[in-house]
Design a protein around this nucleic acid. Structure first.
Length: 352
DNA sequence: GACGCGTGGCC
DNA sequence: TGGCCAAGCGT
């Protein structure tokens, strides 16, 4: 099969079937960059409202660079992988302050920015400047694995190299941005993970996976390791009608605010764990009272059950250690801060 | 190379 | 309920 035929068929299909997505209405590097970062590991439908809201509040890279981190995280709240927002913020400041507002001129230059890897750099450079850079994302892995009947695990390093080589050999000099988006669009809507719509596929005549009757079983992946389940505790410390919140350090949910607490260690009771965590993390001493709620939550790599206890402040002095800051807030004010999903679940159990 | 890193939808 | 997956990146 010729790559020319694949390119033609795919571009023609894309011309007729491309969705009217907001980031496709402009080649503004800021808008394309923002969309690509938001779309990392995140569905189009999830991104749409976040994208619009973000651009209303921070319409330019200069506005982003000038914003404070709390604003940035508040706009990102709920999208997950919060390091993406902090990297976007850092990169915007680098562009404005170190590059005099000059955009990267190539995929290689985009790669220098935090949060921009091989995929994102190729996507931005091909879309905004017509640079013939390839992209390999989850969609492209699936499409190519089926098209070329690649049945080694696609998360294998050797297979990944092969996929990048294939993608690079396919991307045309003429319309690389459209071609890359077409490949991903095909993966999202036709060459879907389950029940692919081969009847509608422009590449059907060339697809080795379909011909062999194994398209839906591809791509193969390596077995994932089991996800651990951890018990955690959190404290509702009340003072004068205000609740104590701590800001999380870099890492899981970095920069977001939570009811302070921590994991329950082996051989430790939940109240013991909570009293210990509050001393270690915030320098305060409490009496742990009744359990108010328990919620389950699943992260990408961890499952937790968090029990919330009412606590009474008995001593110590508020000195954030693990947490990078602490604040006392009324219930109404909780919505002003970036909160993780699990904290919102817990907050639902508070008396209004 | 293997992890750590969120959330929501689907089956 | 639980596993899988999604326009990945950084370490």
């Amino acid at each position: 099969m010729s790559s020319g035929r694949i390119q033609q068929a795919l571009l023609a299909w894309y011309g007729d079937n491309a969705r009217d997505l907001p980031w496709r209405r402009s080649r503004d590097p800021y808008r394309v960059w923002l969309s690509e970062v938001m779309l990392q590991q995140t569905r189009v439908e999830t991104v749409l409202p976040y994208y619009e809201r973000w651009l209303e509040r921070l319409p330019t890279v200069a506005a982003l660079a000038a914003a404070d981190e709390e604003t940035v995280l508040r706009l990102w709240q709920g999208l997950g992988y919060y390091r993406r927002a902090r990297n976007l913020h850092r990169a915007a400041r680098a562009i404005v302050e170190e590059r005099g507002g000059r955009w990267p001129a190539s995929a290689a230059e985009w790669r220098q920015l935090p949060g921009v890897g091989r995929y994102t750099a190729g996507a931005i450079a091909s879309i905004t400047r017509g640079e013939p850079a390839a992209v390999v994302d989850g969609n492209v892995k699936r499409v190519l694995a089926r098209l070329f009947l690649i049945d080694e695990p696609v998360d294998d390093a050797a297979t990944l190299r092969r996929l990048w080589l294939l993608a690079e050999s396919l991307v045309p000099a003429a319309a690389p941005g459209d071609f890359n988006q077409a490949l991903m669009e095909l993966g999202a809507r036709i060459c879907r993970p389950r029940r692919p719509r081969c009847d509608l596929c422009p590449l059907r005549p060339d697809c080795r996976g379909r011909r062999a009757g194994v398209a839906e079983s591809l791509p193969r992946r390596r077995r994932r390791r089991p996800i651990p389940h951890r018990q955690e505790v959190a404290a509702l410390v009340v003072r004068g009608g205000r609740y104590l919140l701590g800001r999380r350090p870099p890492g899981l949910l970095g920069g977001l605010w939570e009811f302070p607490g921590g994991p329950v260690a082996e051989g430790e009771s939940p109240p013991q764990a909570l009293a210990r965590a509050l001393v270690e993390r915030l320098g305060i001493e409490v009496d742990v009272g009744p359990r108010l709620a328990a919620v389950d939550h699943a992260y990408s790599h961890l499952k937790v059950t968090v029990a919330l206890y009412r606590c009474r402040l008995t001593g110590g002095e508020l000195r954030p250690a693990y947490h990078t800051a602490a604040r006392w807030l009324r219930r109404r004010q909780l919505g002003d801060l970036p909160l993780p999903r699990v904290t919102r679940k817990l907050a639902r159990h508070l008396a209004a």
